[in-house]
Structures are given as structure tokens and as C-alpha cells.
């Protein structure tokens, strides 16, 4: 076998993976190792592969992904904290032929925006909600979130979440799956290649569902917050597997046809 040089391999015809053009060239504002970047890429790859950039309108939340519109190369609106599903409701109803999605964190979606989330889901708005659950308020410096695990430390639960004092973490995805307006509810992760591939299939299904006009598709992505959890990225992914997944088990929760 003859020796092959790197230059011979790095030819356009040999390309198997490169960043989608639906991600802008702006450097992501997320901490090193944060799952937000991977989740952004998964969503944008799906929109790219479906060829629906021109018909897509995204809604950015308040939180770490408040600047999502800097990275996602589609028309975007930046919502007030928790209100993204309300914006998306109007956009979809006023322009039913468009693809509309929200991208929200756990504080945005499951605390301040609980009403907007539940009612958009219950009305069966034909939108996609991407929900990043990392169990903490990352942007504001690591405070307790509605999804913070029992005993989990944060800057506002410095001795661990005491459920007797601070209440229970909210499994909002299971709650949403009960609502008649949701068509597809799933929980995914983006910490390993296999998880990313599964998450991408879920996001693809969610966007394909929008064509059916049969209800809302909700994709939770359990993610890490290594800065907030005060770990290295790989440690945080291991911690997530050991601690987050038992409480927030991965997989489809509701699949209707």
C-alpha cells in the first residue's frame, strides 16, 4: 500500500463533515464544552438538510442562548424572558406556511415561561420547541433552576437543593407530554456522538411534524453546564450521565402519528 499524504485526503471529494453554513462564523459565546453549541448545530443542520432556511423563523430566549440569533443563520426574534412560545404562536398563526421554532433554556421555559409553554403546547401550536435543560441558570452565574436536582448545589442553593425548603425540580417535559396538543415529546442529549445522532433524528422528526399540522413537537436536550456545575467539560458530561439521566431519563416520551 502506497503512503497517502494529508493533502491527498483533504480534498473536497473526500469531505465527510463540515460546519453547516446555517451556523454563522461568529464565535459561539458559550463556555468551552457547553452543550448549547452542539444543540445549535443539530438544529441548524436539520434546517439545512431539509432546505427550509428561507421559510424558517426562530425565537431566541433570555438566558445563555439569548444571543442564539448571532449564531443561527435564519431570521430570528429575541423574546422577553419565557415568552418565546407566545411569539412563536403568533408567527406561526400569521404565517402558517413557515417553519417556526423556539430555543429555550430551563429557567426561561420551565420557570418564568411556564404558562406560555404549557398553553402553547396545550393549544397544539404547530411549532417546534427546543428545550435545553442543564439544571441551572448559567447566564446569571449559576443560580438554582426549576430543574436543579435535589441536593444539587448552585449559587442560590449553596448547601444543595433542599426540596423541603426550595421545592421540587419540575419535570416539565413529562407534564407537557400529558397535554393533548403535543404530537411528539422527547428527551435527548448531545454529549456523545451516538447521543448527538439520536438528538438530530429527533429534531428532524420535530421539524417534519410541522408539515403535518397536528400539534406541537417538543425536544428536550439534557445538557451540561460545566461552568455552573464547576467541573471540566468531560467531568460535567460524566456527572450528567450519573446524576441527570436517572432523574431525566432519555428517550421518546410521546410519539403520536
Amino acid at each position: 500500500m502506497s503512503q497517502i499524504t494529508k493533502e491527498e485526503i483533504r480534498q473536497p471529494e473526500n469531505l465527510v463533515y463540515k460546519k453547516t453554513e446555517l451556523l454563522t462564523d461568529n464565535p459561539l459565546s458559550y463556555c468551552p464544552g457547553c452543550g448549547h453549541g452542539t444543540a445549535h448545530r443539530v438544529v441548524m443542520e436539520v434546517i439545512d438538510e431539509m432546505g427550509i432556511q428561507e421559510q424558517t423563523i426562530g425565537i431566541a430566549p433570555v438566558g445563555c442562548s439569548v444571543l442564539a440569533y448571532e449564531f443561527m443563520n435564519v431570521d430570528m426574534q429575541q423574546a422577553a424572558h419565557g415568552r418565546a412560545p407566545a411569539l412563536a404562536t403568533a408567527v406561526k398563526r400569521l404565517m402558517p406556511e413557515k417553519f417556526v421554532f423556539t430555543y429555550q433554556g430551563d429557567g426561561d421555559l420551565a420557570a418564568i415561561g411556564t404558562a406560555e409553554t404549557i398553553h402553547a403546547c396545550n393549544r397544539g401550536e404547530n411549532i417546534v420547541i427546543i428545550f435545553i435543560n442543564n439544571g441551572i441558570y448559567g447566564m446569571t452565574g449559576g443560580q438554582m433552576a426549576p430543574t436543579t436536582l435535589p441536593g444539587m448545589k448552585s449559587s442560590t442553593s449553596p448547601y444543595g437543593r433542599d426540596v423541603a425548603l426550595m421545592g421540587n425540580p419540575l419535570k416539565i417535559t413529562e407534564l407537557i407530554a400529558q397535554l393533548p396538543g403535543t404530537l411528539y415529546v422527547t428527551r435527548q442529549a448531545v454529549h456523545t456522538p451516538a447521543a448527538v445522532r439520536r438528538a438530530k433524528r429527533a429534531v428532524r422528526k420535530a421539524f417534519e411534524n410541522q408539515k403535518l399540522n397536528k400539534g406541537l413537537s417538543f425536544v428536550e436536550i439534557v445538557s451540561n453546564c460545566n461552568s455552573g456545575w464547576k467541573m471540566t467539560p468531560n467531568q460535567s458530561n460524566e456527572w450528567m450521565v450519573e446524576n441527570m439521566f436517572p432523574f431525566y431519563p432519555l428517550g421518546d416520551i410521546k410519539v403520536n402519528d
Partner: peptide, 19 residues
């Protein structure tokens, strides 16, 4: 060229070739 690295890269900085 399995692309696993690129698939998990949060910052999409890896391009993969395979021959």
C-alpha cells in the same frame, strides 16, 4: 474519518475528510 469528534464538537471547529 468517522467524524465522531466533529459531531460532538460544541463549536463546530472540526472538518472531516475520508478517503
Amino acid at each position: 474519518g468517522c467524524a465522531n469528534c466533529a459531531i460532538v464538537c460544541p463549536d463546530a471547529v472540526i472538518t472531516v475528510y475520508r478517503k
